[in-house]
Design a protein around this nucleic acid. Structure first.
Ligand code: MN
Ligand code: MN
Ligand code: ZN
Ligand code: ZN
Lengths: 157, 157
DNA sequence: GATATATTGATAACCATTATCATTTGACGG
DNA sequence: CCGTCAAATGATAATGGTTATCAATATATC
């Protein structure tokens, strides 16, 4: 038996993972639980590498490959959502009990603001209909300069 | 002197490139012109690698590094636009005298349909305003199944 | 044409990610 | 509990797309 969560509210995510593993001949393991816990503790968009750095601080014995594998597993299980950033790196964010949203990204400081705009979603549905496509998902990123960076007039790096 | 275009209408793109090079201590070269011509002859979204394959058929002496370098140059000069695909590869498309548009992507066959939706653009502008961001650009991809693939009920690969 | 400098192509290096594989671990039945 | 066995692990090598290095070459200007 492995369980024994620290964050009370993370129990349900863990059960989602366990349910996903069940019947698939996959096993619940200590490294997987640690990766899940660390991931749930991060309220941001992280790459697998960044997640690995955070995981190491909790359990240095966990290998990089396991973190990469597990975060993919979390995505399959519906606990994480990933997207390929414009620089080519893949980032992950929480997906369980998180509503769909898109992102405003500051090109100067990298800040990310999440937003939902019903009108955009509606217009997208219309585009799908017009072209006879069946929707499976979309990615929208609005690039720009955030209020703080506009004030500074900065041009990072 | 290098010039001597085959496609009559490509002359203006070439002059855009030459103008960009001028005053920047950059030089117009035969490989650059070849890469530009081949690129202009492809009405699709291509990776640098795919462009390299096409360039080789015209001039096998041109190296891969030069194609990668040149296509980046074309982007800087405003002749190409690039985007990172979800699989991590970067693809390029024509940007000169091409209006902004977004993409519908078939997840089964990879087909790409370009579209412009004024309503989406308007709603995006509203999001920028609401959050005090200064817009610099955006990327929107609608993933789905195209009409042909829906009929086949296919699930590629 | 000679000169100075940018460009080239072959190659090595890079980075994020994935595959390989011997060893360890967890789930299950006894 | 313990044994069994497939699944998981971590170290490492390999991959794919891209960029850096560098000696040789081509270009613009004089
Ligand atoms: Mn988000
Ligand atoms: Mn396009
Ligand atoms: Zn900012
Ligand atoms: Zn299709």
């Amino acid at each position: 038996m492995i369980f024994n969560m620290k964050r009370a509210d993370a129990a349900t995510e863990l059960s989602v993972l366990v349910d996903y593993l069940q019947g698939r001949d996959l096993k619940m393991t200590r490294p997987r639980q640690t990766v899940l816990e660390v991931f749930l503790g991060i309220e941001a968009h992280v790459t697998a590498e960044e997640l690995y750095d955070a995981v190491r601080k909790v359990d240095p014995s966990i290998g990089q490959a396991t973190v990469f594998r597990t975060v993919r597993l979390l995505e399959e299980a519906g606990l994480a959502r990933s997207a390929c950033r414009d620089d080519g790196a893949r980032s992950y964010e929480h997906a369980y009990r998180h509503k769909h949203h898109d992102h405003l990204v500051c090109v100067d400081c990298g800040a990310i603001v999440e937003f939902r705009e019903a009108e955009i979603e509606r217009a997208q549905a219309a585009v799908y209909r017009k072209h006879g496509f069946e929707a499976t998902g979309h990615s929208l990123e609005l690039f720009g300069r955030c209020p703080a960076c506009r004030r500074k007039g900065g041009t990072r790096a």
